[in-house]
Amino acid sequence: MTTGIESKDVLKVAKLAKLQLTEEEVKRLVDELSQIVGYVDQLSSVDTTNVAPLDHVLDVTDALRDDIVISSLPRESALSNAPKEDGETFLVPPVLG
């Protein structure tokens, strides 16, 4: 089955997924995704008329908690894994408003 995944599709998806791909990777992913998507396309042959999507296998509902404050992390540990911080906030390259 041809799925028609082209390098422009790969690049578009990579942009959404925030991945920077080398030319070689793009080429490889065109092949691999075509193969995988081609395999996955067999699902389109299943008759799913009147079948509701299953988004939870378990019949659990209403997992709710009461509105009670629990102590937050000390700031030091909130920031402890940050690649860059200034003791108060996380630092990232400029966010343009």
Partner: peptide
């Protein structure tokens, strides 16, 4: 996210 041009730092500061 807070960005203060005058602070001299290029980074934005994030408060969660």
């Amino acid at each position: 996210s807070m960005h203060d041009e005058s602070s001299g730092s290029a980074d934005s500061r994030i408060d969660l």
